[in-house]
Design a protein around this nucleic acid. Structure first.
Length: 302
DNA sequence: CATGTTTCCTGACAGC
DNA sequence: TGCTGTCAGGAAACAT
């Protein structure tokens, strides 16, 4: 399941392979769930667009596009107000005083992989996998395909896309501490809250809490400054180590080259219910917190 | 607003 | 073999 390290790995792979290419045409499947922007807007933004770069923002893959097929400035801000498309992450920041921008050439294509989403760089004659929801034909002759059996993934286009929460690898300690102030929710849930930190998922939340010696059910507000001083580097270290190993592969995740990550070999609590703690041999416990399975050592974590 | 619960999805797997 | 039920989980929707 792609969290920050997996998305980072995938985005890097896509950047290496796709930067400089051009999207010639786009095919969208018939399933509406993956689309978070109106289909015509996605197609219009992507077709003829030059891929200037690919990066990760939180758990999102962001394709930076230039010279899209549409003069995108007029994509009506009010048109998607209704119905199920209301939360399109399209945000527009117009400079006050400037008249209608003549040539806004920068747009972003945002891909969230959800649980089972994959971005595959294929040859045109590669068999099209089941649950393929999008195919972008590239000027290089290759195809970029979005495959997602469970359809928790999301596609959208935006201008000035920003994640709602702080980047875990960039946030400063003071701000990190402030994120949890006064929150009655369990620290595990707070770590998963993307509006606080963008990119931490279930695996790395459990792993970071283990390294910091903090039980997942502790109320966030109850953590001492000392607790948070341990949690802060724990989160960053676990993410960095995972990125260095290409992420974790539990079942669904494969990066854009089809390679699996290896960080799952480093998991100390996640998926180890009943197995001995690697530090003290106490059996690892599993509990459910806000519907998320959470793993911890009852002795090492307080 | 903050927080907790339900819902969306399909494939894998256990049990019969 | 084939069926049924359960589980996995990110994040939006909904309820409190």
């Amino acid at each position: 399941m792609p969290e920050l390290p997996e998305v980072e790995t995938i985005a890097r792979g896509l950047a290496n392979r796709l930067t400089g290419d051009v999207i010639d045409s786009v095919w969208l499947g018939s399933k509406p769930e993956p689309l978070r922007s109106p289909a015509p807007e996605i197609v219009g933004t992507l077709e003829s667009a030059h891929i200037a770069g690919v990066r990760r923002v939180g758990k999102h893959i962001v394709f930076d596009l230039q010279n899209g097929g549409w003069a995108h400035s007029t994509a009506s801000p009010g048109s998607a107000v209704q119905g199920r498309l209301r939360t399109s992450p399209v945000k527009r920041k117009r400079l006050p005083g400037k008249s209608a921008p003549p040539t806004p050439t920068a747009a972003q294509w945002i891909v969230h992989l959800g649980m089972t989403g994959r971005m595959l760089v294929c040859k045109p004659d590669d068999p099209v996998e089941k649950h393929t929801h999008m195919i972008a034909k590239l000027a290089s002759g290759r195809e970029l395909r979005f495959v997602d059996p469970r359809r928790f993934g999301r596609l959208s286009v935006a201008h000035g896309f920003e994640a709602p929460g702080s980047e875990p690898l960039e946030v400063e300690l003071e701000r990190f501490v402030g994120l949890f102030r006064g929150r009655k929710t369990p620290i595990k849930s707070a770590l998963l809250n993307q509006k606080l930190l963008s990119g931490v998922g279930n695996i790395y939340a459990d792993e970071a809490l283990f390294r910091a010696g903090i039980r997942p059910r502790r109320r966030a507000a109850s953590l001492t400054k000392e607790d948070l001083r341990r949690l802060y580097p724990a989160v960053q270290e676990v993410l960095k180590e995972a990125i260095a190993l290409g992420g974790s592969s539990i079942s669904d995740y494969v990066d854009s080259d089809g390679e699996e990550g290896f960080f799952q070999l480093q998991h100390r609590v996640y998926g180890r219910e009943g197995e001995p703690c690697l530090v003290c041999k106490t059996p690892i416990k599993r509990v459910v917190i806000s519907g998320r399975s959470s793993h911890y050592c009852p002795k090492c974590q307080r």
